[in-house]
Design a binder for these strands. Sequence first.
DNA 1: CCCCGTAGGTTAACGGTGTTAGGTTAACGC
DNA 2: GCGTTAACCTAACACCGTTAACCTACGGGG
Lengths: 233, 233
Amino acid sequence: MTVVEKDQDRAEPAHGETAILEAARDLLVNRGVDGLSMRQVAEQVGVSATAIYHYFSGKQDLVNRVVLRAFERFGSYLRDAMAQHPEGSIERIEALGYAYLRFALENQEYYRVMFHIHPEQRDSLEALPDGGGYDLLRQAVVDAVAAGTIRGQRGSGDADLTLSQDAYPDTLAMYLWSTVHGLVTLALCGATDHCNIGGPASVFSLYEAFTPFIAEGIVVPQHGNEAKKESNQ
Amino acid sequence: MTVVEKDQDRAEPAHGETAILEAARDLLVNRGVDGLSMRQVAEQVGVSATAIYHYFSGKQDLVNRVVLRAFERFGSYLRDAMAQHPEGSIERIEALGYAYLRFALENQEYYRVMFHIHPEQRDSLEALPDGGGYDLLRQAVVDAVAAGTIRGQRGSGDADLTLSQDAYPDTLAMYLWSTVHGLVTLALCGATDHCNIGGPASVFSLYEAFTPFIAEGIVVPQHGNEAKKESNQ
DNA sequence: CCCCGTAGGTTAACGGTGTTAGGTTAACGC
DNA sequence: GCGTTAACCTAACACCGTTAACCTACGGGG
């Protein structure tokens, strides 16, 4: 079983590890992480619950393996978005934000478990692909700074900051990540209902409304702040 | 028991509902929401597990009641911060952000359960004090706009937005909330380890580094963007 | 050929969980 | 005195993650 068949006879139901992972993924997506139980996974595969422990060390390990697949899927969302806009452009960064939102809304249970993990549960999640997507964002920021479309240094009068200037791309990437991640998590836990903005799926509208606030802070002011009239498709 | 004693003889251990709530709070803070079990709460109170069901409809209800207290505590953090800076000032809004971070870091398990709630579990959480803190932020934004310290309208060339101009304070408040909430949740799930910035408790440094990005978007540009040299204490 | 190790399961059980059903006891109003 | 009700109790149900012990088929080495 450790030797995988050449994905030729894929019509027959998957065996062992693969089948367990697929069943776990289905349960996690449909019923959430608390609705995913060893016994239900086993039943769906057609096997006893303890058989799972031959492939995974426990429930946490099983969930982590599913989460790892989710992060790969996540990365594909981001990469697709990046591929559609030139390197160093603001549009690429904006598109990354949209892709982030799209993934989160289309894979809510994935997203919840991906970013709900307590530090002590990370274990088998140390090495995420693309640093959990962060590397892609950081690279886009670095490119945009190099291209001159994004401010290459800090704002006015902040020479005494505790973070060194070397950390600038990380700081900016974390800022962007925080904004979009905060929006998503607030929306997913229903906090957007408190404000008088809109019904469900107003997340994209909100993000659209954020961009001027973000842009006029990160776009270089000297050559034309009028340059982004109708950038986002 | 429904009639509360006049908080005079508070030396004796609390009875009934109060004792249960306190035990539940302790367990939630120390062991997290999954470590909070009916039986352990009951044992700590010195009562059988099913006795809890006389005061609370179930575990979710019990947790929600604890969360409600947490939101009151949360509100006191925010109000204290607001009281130390004049109405309409940027400093007040900055201080709100700091207070938000301080609460989240000093009450991590509270924070986790406060903002991890699935929509279907809200039930007894419909009416949060101060709209879960959002009302305070929104008011600070409205005041700052009225005082002229914050941009009173959208940025350049966005007349065709889906959100109406009436929603401007909500949009800006949600933007600020998203940023700080995103930062906190990323830090709490260990995502800040991916970036090359700093060890733990670098959250405040990061927030400090964010403020120029945020400010140069929301501070009015015409009369002096140099005005915030050493604002935060 | 036999024997042994291993992959891939099995059943039974332990201690834990939230929750329900039904019974008991004490206090209080009429 | 009597009925009601608050405030508990024990027993039990149906789950949960996990462990221990056992079984079975198969493949390779002596």
